[in-house]
């Protein structure tokens, strides 16, 4: 199976070719069904409902965020 490089939260990661957002979260050992996280790919927010159908490309820039303590 071929791999590709993407950026996740500023770090380079090697992942399966054309992996979708949902499978990426599983590969990162994040629970995709958990409430409270959001994902943007190339600065565009991907709604939860579209995670399985959104495939990443070589050099995709992925941000995964959650709520932290703030003022």
């Amino acid at each position: 199976m071929k791999n590709m490089k993407i950026h996740v939260n500023g770090e380079e990661k090697e992942v399966r070719l054309n992996i979708n957002v949902y499978d990426l979260l599983i590969a990162l050992e994040l629970e995709p069904i958990q409430a409270g996280i959001a994902v943007a790919v190339d600065r565009e927010v991907i709604p939860k409902a579209a995670w399985q159908e959104t495939e990443l490309r070589e050099n995709s820039d992925v941000e995964i965020i959650r709520a932290v303590q703030g003022g």
């Binding site: 939260n9 500023g10 050992e29 994040l30 959001a38 965020i65 959650r66 932290v68 303590q69 703030g70």
Partner: peptide, 12 residues
């Protein structure tokens, strides 16, 4: 209030 920050998967 809360802030939005990157998930750290090294510390789940």
């Amino acid at each position: 209030t809360v802030s939005m920050r990157r998930v750290k998967w090294t510390d789940p």
